[in-house]
């Protein structure tokens, strides 16, 4: 059987599996944000960066190879991941204390997991008005981390192409596929897969807010590193949806 060596532990894998898939099947956590087991990987967030045979690579996109030595849970990699998280936090407006996604948010859960204690970098404080036009769903762009999960879900599962990223570099941002730019003017529905996959607090069912109390939210129940077998849309804690 072909195996990789993940932090010294031999893990079997099937042909075509990525490092991330091999690790997940073995119940080993590799931090990630844009990866979702139900979608084709895109390797944009770089949180899953590991060292494979001495090179920094994305675990979610690199196919495993027999005998590959992979470093995952090391101070060096976790330092880099923490820095990536800090950059994500300052680039948007992530105010966990009043965010209804708190406790259900992957970004927050990873920040706890990787012991991010400060933002470190200067806050950008971007001005991003929310889109509350849709009767059932609120879009709070302040928290977008550009993972494109909603883009992929709407395009590949819902067949609607409601979301896309626009702009380049620091001006890259999430847009809605309507001439008005408003979600209400698309065929988006709360039942769409795209409404269920946001790992942070951008796509929110309206009027739910804090209905689930502290202590019963997904990452209150177990830290993110203990939930490797769950896809983000299948939860062990209660969630709004």
């Amino acid at each position: 059987m072909k195996t990789i060596l993940l932090d010294g532990l031999p893990l079997p894998f099937a042909d075509g599996q990525t490092i991330m898939e091999a690790a997940t099947e073995a119940g080993i956590f590799i931090p990630h944000l844009c990866h979702h087991p139900e979608f084709k990987p895109q390797g944009s967030c770089k949180l899953c960066t590991v060292k494979a045979n001495g090179r920094y690579v994305s675990a979610c996109t690199l196919p495993a190879k027999d005998g590959m030595e992979v470093e995952n849970n090391s101070p060096d990699l976790n330092d880099k991941r923490r820095t990536l998280l800090q950059m994500l936090f300052v680039e948007g407006n992530h105010f966990c204390p009043s965010c209804e996604k708190s406790g259900n948010c992957m970004l927050q859960a990873l920040a706890y997991e990787l012991e991010m204690l400060t933002p470190h970098f200067e806050q950008f404080y971007p001005d991003r008005p929310v889109d509350a036009s849709h009767p059932e769903v609120l879009l709070d762009f302040n928290r977008c981390i550009l993972c494109e999960l909603c883009v992929r879900a709407s395009r590949d599962v819902d067949g609607k192409n409601v979301f896309a990223l626009s702009g380049r570099g620091i001006r890259k941002h999430l847009i809605v596929n309507a001439e008005s730019g408003r979600l209400a003017d698309t065929d988006f529905s709360l039942a769409d897969k795209a409404a269920q996959v946001c790992p942070v607090g951008v796509i929110l069912q309206k009027r739910k807010g804090f209905a689930i109390p502290i202590g019963r939210r997904r990452y209150d129940v177990e830290p993110i590193a203990m939930q490797v077998e769950c896809a983000p849309s299948r939860t062990s804690g209660e969630q709004e949806s």
Binding site: P97, E100, P129, V130, L138, K206, R207, F210
Partner: peptide, 11 residues
Amino acid sequence: QGRPYWEVPVM
């Protein structure tokens, strides 16, 4: 202002 009402008691 501009925030959803259900967020207000916590904020």
